[in-house]
Design a protein around this nucleic acid. Sequence first.
DNA 1: ATAGCTGCAAAGCATTTGCTGCTAA
DNA 2: TTAGCAGCAAATGCTTTGCAGCTAT
Lengths: 144, 144
Amino acid sequence: MPSRLEELCVQKGLKMTDQRRVISRVLSEATDHPDVEEVHRRASAIDPRISIATVYRTMRLFEEAHVIDRLDFGDGRARYEKTRTDHHHHLIDVETGEVVEFASEEMERLKEAIARELGYDLIGHRLELYGVARSRRQEPQGDS
Amino acid sequence: MPSRLEELCVQKGLKMTDQRRVISRVLSEATDHPDVEEVHRRASAIDPRISIATVYRTMRLFEEAHVIDRLDFGDGRARYEKTRTDHHHHLIDVETGEVVEFASEEMERLKEAIARELGYDLIGHRLELYGVARSRRQEPQGDS
DNA sequence: ATAGCTGCAAAGCATTTGCTGCTAA
DNA sequence: TTAGCAGCAAATGCTTTGCAGCTAT
C-alpha cells in the first residue's frame, strides 16, 4: 500500500523510485519533526541501499513539490514535516527537545494586521516559542 | 571617545583589546543588522590587522555578555544587533532584504498566553515576518 | 539509446578551534 | 613570567554537487 505522501508525490508528477518511495513512507509515518540524518536512519532500516545524498536530494525535491515543509528550530539543521493545510506553529521544549504544535487564529490575524500597518503584504512568516514545562519548574533536581 | 557599546562591555567586565574596541565601535554605529563578514569588512576599514576569526570570537563573547543579540533570518548566517531593552521583531522585505523593526504589545501578550495554555513557561521565542512592500506590488516591472 | 536517478567522494559555506607567537600587567 | 589574546590554517557540521555507472523506458 503506497503511503499517503507517495500518492501526493505522484499527483505532483514526481517520478517515484524505490528510494523515494521509502523516504516518502518514512515521512508519511513520522509523527515528529525528523532531520535529514534521522530520515536517513529510518529509511536505511527499511532499505539499506540508500545514501544520505539521496535523502538530501529527495527532501529538496519533496519540499519544492510542497509535499513537505522545512522547519528551522535554530540548531543548524533542517527539520521536516508533511505539508499541512492548517496554519500552525511550534513550541520547542528547550529541556527535552520535544515539539508541541499549536494554532492560533488570533496570531494569524495579528501578523497580517502588523504587516499591513507597516505597508507590506505578507509572503511568509516564522514563529517559534521556546519554553520549559511548568510542571518541571518546581522540581528542584534540575541538573544543568 | 569610547562607543556606548564599549562602555557596556567594560561594565560587564570584558577586557577590551584594540580589536574588540574596533568591533564594538562598528557594532555601536551600525543601524542595520550586519553579519560577521560585514562586521569584519567594516572593522578592517578602521584597522586592517583584524582577522575574521577574531570577529567570530568577539561576536560570541559580546553575545554571551548580552551586549549584542544574534538574529537568524533563515539565510544560513547569523546577523547581529545591539541588545535593546524593548521587545521587538523584524519584518524582512524579501525583495530588497531590508529589515523593518516593529513591536507589538498584543503579540507579547498573545505568545505568553499561548505558552501558558500549553503548560509552558516561555524562555524565548522567535518571530519574523517576510513580506513585499505593498507599493511595489502594483508596479509591473518586476524582473524575477 | 537515453534521460534521469543513485552512490561516492569531494567541494562549499558558515563557524569553530588547535597551535604558536605576541602582549599587557 | 604568565595568563589571556590574535592570527593563521586546519577542522567541523550540515548541505550540495561533479562524476561515472546504473536503470527503466
